[in-house]
Design a protein around this nucleic acid. Structure first.
Length: 219
DNA sequence: TGCCAGGCCGGGT
DNA sequence: ACCCGGCATGGC
């Protein structure tokens, strides 16, 4: 299995990140269902706020498919309030629960065992589930070898000249998936490391490149 | 105080 | 095909 030139560079960047930060232990959740819910709640939201919302759901004993599906919309919205955009996210979670109920008889295990491409297509048809959320569910809940692209990934790769600025989601994803071995553990760790280095060194405004483990890879 | 966070949708061009 | 405003809390 030969690795392309881009693949070697991506792997070198990965090793530099891993050496600097070590394993990130993603996704931070107790169950695949918690991963799925967290994937929706973290849309455009800091993880610290998501943790508060998840904690509320746990304390209210609503963090199961059946209980979440049956929760009143108002109550659900109030429970996830700390995660922001809570009315929208409550509706999105309801859509996701309806999808799970109707297509997989409410069985998350059944859903996570489904054909990957069919499941991705189905998830993307849900109002409120876009490519990143769908792929996060596939990788971190179902353990499928799908690369998750987020704002940090696009920003870091474009600043390194590996993809154009504001590149399309699928294009960034293809760069990883066409040039790296299709290894879920690798994709898991790589995405988490990109988020880590992004938070520290690749903010939207005032990029702080000094001391970044990826600095040797610029130009 | 303003900007940002592990996006996505709907409407407009 | 892109571009934009809206959604909303909590941290710095």
């Amino acid at each position: 299995m030969t690795v392309s030139k881009s693949g070697k560079r991506l792997l070198a960047m990965y090793h530099a990140l891993y050496k600097a930060y070590g394993p990130q232990h993603w996704w931070p959740a107790d169950t695949p269902f918690e991963v799925m819910v967290g994937a929706v709640l973290t849309q455009n939201t800091s993880w610290a706020n998501v943790e508060k919302a998840i904690m509320n759901l746990k304390r209210a004993r609503v963090l199961t498919p059946a209980r979440l599906r049956d929760a009143a919309p108002r109550r659900l919205a109030m429970l996830i309030r700390p995660s922001g955009t809570f009315n929208i996210k409550a509706a999105r979670l309801a859509h996701l629960m309806a999808f799970l109920t109707e297509r997989y008889r409410g069985s998350l295990a059944l859903m996570l065992r489904a054909d990957m491409r069919e499941l991705r297509k189905g998830l993307l048809q849900i109002n409120g589930i876009g490519p990143e959320t769908a792929d996060a569910i596939l990788l971190y809940a179902a353990g499928r070898p799908v690369f998750v692209v987020d704002a940090y990934t696009e920003r870091i790769l474009s600043r390194h000249g590996l993809v154009p600025v504001r590149a399309r989601y699928e294009d960034v994803q293809q760069l990883f998936m066409c040039n790296l071995p299709g290894d879920a553990a690798l994709f898991n760790e790589y995405h988490a490391l990109l988020v880590r280095v992004g938070k520290l060194h690749c903010k939207k405004s005032s990029p702080q490149c000094s001391g970044c483990p990826l600095e040797p890879f610029l130009c």
